[in-house]
Design a binder for these strands. Sequence first.
DNA 1: CTGTTAGCGCCTTCAG
DNA 2: CTGAAGGCGCTAACAG
Lengths: 333, 333
Amino acid sequence: MEKQTITIYDVAREASVSMATVSRVVNGNPNVKPATRKKVLEVIDRLDYRPNAVARGLASKKTTTVGVIIPDVTNIYFSSLARGIDDVATMYKYNIILANSDENGQKELQVLNTLLAKQVDGIIFMGNQISTNMRSEFARSKTPIVLAGSVDSDEEIASVNIDYIAAVEEAVSTLIRHGNKRVAFVTGNMDQPINGLYRLNGYKKALAKAGLPFDEKLVFETEYSYKAGEAIWPEIKATDATAAVVGDDELAIGLLNGAGDDNAKFPDDFEIITSNDSKLTEMSRPKMSSITQPLYDIGAVAMRLLTKLMNKEEIENQTILLPYGIVERGTTK
Amino acid sequence: MEKQTITIYDVAREASVSMATVSRVVNGNPNVKPATRKKVLEVIDRLDYRPNAVARGLASKKTTTVGVIIPDVTNIYFSSLARGIDDVATMYKYNIILANSDENGQKELQVLNTLLAKQVDGIIFMGNQISTNMRSEFARSKTPIVLAGSVDSDEEIASVNIDYIAAVEEAVSTLIRHGNKRVAFVTGNMDQPINGLYRLNGYKKALAKAGLPFDEKLVFETEYSYKAGEAIWPEIKATDATAAVVGDDELAIGLLNGAGDDNAKFPDDFEIITSNDSKLTEMSRPKMSSITQPLYDIGAVAMRLLTKLMNKEEIENQTILLPYGIVERGTTK
DNA sequence: CTGTTAGCGCCTTCAG
DNA sequence: CTGAAGGCGCTAACAG
């Protein structure tokens, strides 16, 4: 009365061939006479046989599933990447094991281990901190890994991103060109290279290019959330900043609304350029000006790259930079 | 030079015990003398042995992974549920294979099949249409299934939801109490029971209770997207509706902004109550009044229910209804 | 083109 | 409490 599974052996018997032959037709091996192929296919259909992927995985050492470590699916930035990943994965017959990490080193390590235990063929990692532990685990396991929307300052690990430095520099330059002498830099954890290194550098470069001084008081470190954005407005208001580049769209909308609720007028009183151009940017009023980046494509390209790695193809360039841009909507003059 | 895996056998040899014993300690079987357990554990640690989940799955017929079919991770409503699912899954040592279906029957079936091929221990299904094909597949496979935020009008399949009928009825009644005689009903595909049956019924009940006539002209069927919301405003404006209940938050924000851009004032000119109380509702200006429902919990409870099913525990009630409410924010008087 | 034969790495009786 | 032995369902040489 247990879940009665029908195996390759049953098919073989019914079709009067060996299981090897059945295996061949199931795997599309051309070395099968059309007639017997047809016969086997019929039996497969009649018995409603479905190959057991686990057994296959054990025998072939390939599971056709990849692990995806994501900070939080609930964040539109990451879920957009995830969607791209899944679509391309499906295209290449892979499935995705999704695991939320909250960018918590402990959890990331934990998750990485169970993913490896499950013998995933590859891993896509999102999250901006690559801890030393992670790095060594990555190195030790022979499992291919690609970072999506996450930088590895050492460029040892394959990754797909945009040029954060240049993008932020351009965003800040735009703000400066609009007449802002004091531009706030608002983003997440500065320990993460994407913030503390890349984005901050872009910010400083723009300042330098315009002959403007860098002032630590204009740097705001917080978390990526709507609430955090609302909460930080008073602090920004207390400075003489007249504009801000913001590292996350939810954070930016929080800031926008916090300021709006405080009667600030956009873009006259204050200008904002956010970073991810997620669909949230079109939902606010005014709509948000933003650095544009192809979120879906970052995920898609990362997955595509991973398939190549899993396939042991030669890769010319491990770190891919996708094009970015700046779109000016309602929060800039 | 291949990926050098160390197996249970290596551990057994190093610890001078049989692989059966190693298996026992790995699986927490109590029938192992503390001393030998300790010895084995040491070797495991030293060799950095990691049990192969695929082999384990084949031998034990349990993969400790569940499949999650989701319309689109990018939709905040579904990703909120997904987060609840993943957290509880992790809590119970399960992993999640996430697959986007776009609520496309074809894809759903496709995905269901590969999920079953991968021998998932259970499935959580999101998406509002349970096609006949799906239903028969569900029935045929002995794999436990739970619907999350998705109704099965026959109540044959386990599910976790809120009482959509009552919730919409209350929302519409609220609008009527505010003086609106003409309330628009705006939602997604009416072929889906959640819309065409449950929500619509709630809408009609509220109308009936207030002695108001049902008018098909006030029923707007569209898709769950921001754009669709913006696009439908002109149509609604062309009627004499003064308020609307909307089936999805993105759709509602689109409507709100579409109307706002057309100089409609909320809540004086028009009132809106949306349905999901996702974090988007706090991001709009004015903030959106909404039916409240515990998104995260719906996912979490669904996953919890699934663990019971997978564990063959007796279930008292297959269809769980979680509490809902109405929160009035800026889009209602 | 097709069948035979070994495993893949682990769990699970069944003895001892 | 521990070891031996037989699969789980399928792939992958290796013969023919």
